[in-house]
Nucleic acid binder design. Structure first.
Lengths: 367, 367
DNA sequence: ACGTTTCCTGGAAACGTTTCCCGGTACGCT
DNA sequence: AGCGTACCGGGAAACGTTTCCAGGAAACGT
């Protein structure tokens, strides 16, 4: 009895299922309800029309059997081949910017019963490539990507497969993908101009990896206001708090240290601030950072930032993607969401009168 | 020619596919390579053994045709029915604790080529239920859940379907699920004892919703050290920064305000600190929070915390889940990962000599 | 009252894959 | 040389679903 089963058609299947406690299928439900399998499908998806009486019978049967719809089988057969899944490639699921974006996308998707797959590229093109490929293999209905900028070929491949893609936070050269970005240049330029107006001339710029589109944009914004800052005050390729700290320490040791810092990114801002604070300079040297971070307001002085709204970014990306899923088929669209300058103090510090403030002056208590 | 197709077997399929630019299947590859479809499958999964020569031919064909493996069809037919997906139900994808956990799980999964589906329950049992049900419909191979504690029935249902579940951060009453939690009681008790040893007697406790297991545990830890703190100093059901701020303000207005606060959670800690800081009391009244948060060290004084390690939590949860996927079938296991007290200053403030410091004394400049 | 349309239902054919099973070839052993 | 074994490859049957199609009953119009 346990060894082998007769070769008969359905008998084998049902026996095996019963034996192995396999999942209960539409056929089981159909049998119990005494209807055709097609009817069960119609009831489950409540599509087509079926007599209320039968609906009740089917639902009853499904309930007693503990039937669970199988989404994979469904999407395999379904005409549109939809899986009800969108995939999200972030830089790092755990950083605040990414995760706020994640949340916004997730919410927009959930509203339509769509699930979100996600992964972290860690700024690595290979990893991005892997993720995009896995996601397309999983037949995600659409892709939202924060592109590293060096795996565009893979994104294009996904596009050619007919999967809609929207690039978020960073522009991408392909003309088949929607993008939603932030006005990086404008925001940085505005913050820079503000420092200029406060009398700052020696303004240091600390930026992220130049492979990152936003980093380049922000830097451009900076140079548009300070076209001839000495190269010694410019550091790029900074991608961690530690790197930023080292660089900041180095600049402060200069004979003519900067009177203000502009940071192109979160972690850099924190690194600079930490060094400033360690040296007791946080009230003497101005600091403005791109991208807000939690608790920036609790520090004293508060850290002024050019805030972007990752949730808005995510929501807009989701909107674009969902419209594609709804069949919209126009040319690529490019949304730009505005930044907002938040004055908290650190960006409102005036330049000291002299080019290089005397040490004594520097150490004076801030208030 | 465009209207209808002859009824012949393969012809129809191929024509249609060509016409509609459908995805290319194994059959297409098999045809081009001049092999059987089974061989293509073997090559793609590199299982079984097939002549190097044929492998080459198949890969060549796959390449020229741009063949993409279809994971949904694959998992449908596959004997183990694996989808290569685990699902993660968090409280909120975008909060630092959740997202760090997310990241750890994601990394462990990625190592095995497993993808992660995620969703936010927002502490709502209905939402948790929905998520778990959707995930099981999607046939996720396993589930990692931060349970609200009020949707256990659904979790049990998933378990009965044979899907391994691990509950993380919070205990769950079911004996079919592995759990990994933090030593909430012990950690809180230790921090409380420390305050007691610094002379504090009027210690306020601010806790999260009592429906949350961790909140109850932490509170228990607190009362074990301060069994008879006046009820006025105890606030629970706090779940946002704002709520914590209001409560903190109210307590400070008391004739006998507390000399120390213990916070059961991140946002509460921040709320308390903000109020303390607004009142210039951050150096007079002690504050210890459960769960670390970024920049806690940059404030001054730094905020002392009972730190948990969400990444470790996630990694352990992933480990437990993956072992189940690998076939481990023992009874439920319960991991407890330790907390760590981080002294940064705010938790090291001594109690003032008098029971209720005079107003003048309180307002004196901190330094 | 009869033809025609509409509606509901069930059987069966896909969807793209894995896996079972069997035929065939090559090889090793006696 | 003959036999057995091991191995490789292909055809076809699943997996659980949706969708096509056709049949039958009911409703409708004249």
């Amino acid at each position: 009895m346990t060894a082998s089963f007769p070769k008969g058609r359905t008998v084998t299947g049902e026996r095996r299922r019963a034996e192995a406690r396999q999942s209960v299928t539409m056929r089981d439900v159909a049998n119990l309800a005494g209807v055709g399998i097609a009817t069960v499908s119609r009831v489950v998806n409540n599509t087509g029309s079926v007599t209320p009486e039968l609906v009740e019978k089917v639902q009853e049967a499904a309930r007693t059997l503990g039937y669970r719809h199988d989404a994979t089988a469904s999407s395999l057969r379904r005409a549109d081949r939809r899986t009800g899944t969108v995939a999200l490639v972030l830089e790092d699921v755990s950083n605040p910017f990414s995760s706020a974006l994640h949340r916004a996308v997730s919410d927009a998707a959930a509203e339509r019963g769509i699930l979100v797959l996600s992964g972290s590229s860690d700024e690595s093109p290979e990893r991005e490539r892997e993720l995009v490929e896995t996601f397309t293999a999983r037949r995600a209905d659409g892709l939202i990507v924060v592109p590293t900028g060096r795996a565009d070929a893979t994104i294009e491949a996904a596009r050619r497969l007919g999967i809609p893609v929207v690039a978020v936070d960073r522009m991408v050269r392909l003309d088949s993908v929607d993008t939603v970005t932030v006005d990086n240049q404008e925001g940085t330029a505005r913050a820079a101009a503000r420092l200029r107006d406060l009398g700052h001339r020696r303004v240091a710029y600390f930026g992220d990896l130049a492979t990152i589109w936003t980093a380049r944009e922000r830097f451009t914004g900076f140079t548009s206001v300070f076209p001839d800052v000495p190269p010694a005050l410019i550091r790029r390729e900074l991608h961690s708090i530690d790197a930023a700290e080292d660089a900041a320490r180095a600049l402060l040791a200069l004979p003519e240290p900067p009177t203000a810092f502009i940071s192109g990114q979160n972690l850099i801002t924190i690194g600079i601030r930490r060094v400033l604070q360690d040296s007791g300079l946080e009230r003497r040297i101005a600091l403005t950072g791109f991208d807000d971070f939690p608790l920036a307001d609790l520090l004293s002085p508060g850290v002024s930032v050019i805030a972007q709204d990752p949730a808005a970014l995510g929501a807009e990306a989701a909107r674009l993607l969902l419209s594609r899923l709804d069949g919209h088929n126009g040319p690529a669209r490019h949304s730009v969401v505005p930044t907002r300058y938040i004055a908290r103090g650190s960006g409102e510090i005036r330049a000291a009168a002299g080019e290089a403030p005397a040490a004594a002056e520097v150490r004076a208590p801030g208030r």
